[in-house]
Write a protein that binds this DNA or RNA. Structure first.
Lengths: 252, 252
DNA sequence: GTAAAAATGTTCGTTTTCGCTCGTTTTTCG
DNA sequence: CGAAAAACGAGCGAAAACGAACATTTTTAC
């Protein structure tokens, strides 16, 4: 399929409005109706939209709109971080991956590894890793959180307690200057704490935007993290905290 | 502006705006279009951007999963069986759905129900049911079986033992004339036995082709099933067995 | 200071996109 | 049901964008 600058924006509008019209897009982009029709036809052919007379609608199977938008947010940075993180994980070891778009990116990078045992409480990660037949995938139980495919609650922690991981890759909703890892969901906090307690090496993946966000629940301190992979330089305060607590920092 | 500073800035703009145009960058940097094209091509080669006619956009990781599943779900016989089975399940109750394409079809039919608590060891079912916000979805832990998205092993049975279900919908790999339910995977047998032991009402969904197949491991007897939904008439032997064991039979 | 190397600008032939026309299909409305 | 109106897809020419090759400028290394 040929590409165009308009198509991503058409999809964005479709996800926001639920549908798009040829006329509306003609006004929006200032192009001829035929051009819009061509775009819609091609988007429909590739399964991104469903063509209807006069416009197009979202395919009926599209769920988690908010999530998929968030997943694309800052994606290149996440992939860079993920690549650096995955490079620190050897073959033939056990790894835990928890909830988060950045950890999903790590899962995608891990597809090139071999002989891994990966345990995850993220359904999307399980789907991603099922492509590699040399990776044994174990899913924790738990209540399914629709917003991001995460499995949380008591069942999840129960499962995790039965393992001891060589490596854990975790993320968080927000980071504070004093080195605290924060999260929105109190249930997820319990899971993350359990993961840290059952892992030899804890890797934290988080892009720089996490420093600008606030979240209510405290997961842990950076001191409990062995390796922190991020994209932007840390503030002096945070950098010195990592220094004294022995947390290694890698930049993507 | 020197060359080394231009590419990071292009990425910064792309992340902020979601897309960049050649013309826009020519104005922004005051260089020739060809230079911008070179930059964009190199950024695209390294995976940071996705090149399109007239500019570039952030790489999209939109993955459309579930094509193959949906195809299988559309097999008319399975859908008919699923519809009949789903009609026997009331709103506001707890249901277990196990592995199998027919049970997946049941999940699709249950999308119209409300107030359900559904526990499943099938990742595809979890994805399907996540579309209905009035259904609480719980996933059992377990080793992921790539062939069908099933979660099996000790972790799965452990989880199931913690529940007592109003209804369980199960399937099997094969059916014998004497009323035995058979399966290919010994690990799955353990799961199915546990499900039956922890459910008030057990529904079996299986199309007629199951009678023509052989499988090595015995799950249970039809006598432990309360309702059997199928598409083709049973053999006289099997029908009389159901009669004496009190198993109700429904035809789709 | 000079030469090599890298980056940038220019030209030009090729490819892609876009808008127009026109005949066909779908929808709307009496 | 049937006709008018809207929407649609195919084909075509013009315009824009593209990439390759080469000339020119800037940076780097000695």
């Amino acid at each position: 399929m040929s590409q165009s600058l308009r198509k991503p924006e058409i999809i964005k509008i479709a996800r926001r409005e639920g549908r798009v019209t040829v006329d509306g897009l003609v006004d929006h982009f200032g192009v001829a109706p035929q051009t819009i029709r061509r775009d819609l036809t091609e988007l429909a052919d590739s399964g991104k939209l469903e063509r209807v007379h006069g416009g197009a609608v979202l395919p009926s199977t599209t769920t988690n709109i908010g999530y998929s938008e968030r997943r694309e947010l800052n994606q290149p940075a996440k992939v860079d971080i993920a690549r650096v993180c995955a490079a620190q994980i050897p073959n033939d070891c056990s790894v835990f991956l928890n909830i988060g778009t950045t950890t999903e990116a790590v899962a995608a990078e891990l597809l090139h590894h071999q002989g891994l045992l990966v345990v995850t409480n993220n359904i999307n990660i399980a789907m991603i890793l099922s492509q590699n037949h040399s990776i044994e995938v174990v899913v924790t139980g738990g209540n399914l959180r629709r917003s991001d495919g995460g499995l949380i609650g008591d069942l999840a922690t129960q499962t995790i307690r039965q393992f001891q991981f060589d490596y854990a890759v975790i993320s968080c909703s927000a980071l504070r200057e004093n080195g605290d890892l924060m999260d929105f969901d109190i249930q997820e906090v319990g899971v993350s704490k359990t993961i840290i307690a059952h892992s030899e090496e804890v890797f934290l993946v988080a892009d720089g935007s996490k420093f600008e966000r606030k979240a209510p629940a405290r997961i842990a301190s950076m001191a409990q993290v062995d390796l922190f992979v991020t994209d932007l330089p840390l503030s002096p305060a945070c950098a010195s905290f990592c220094e004294t607590s022995g947390t290694k920092v890698l930049y993507a």
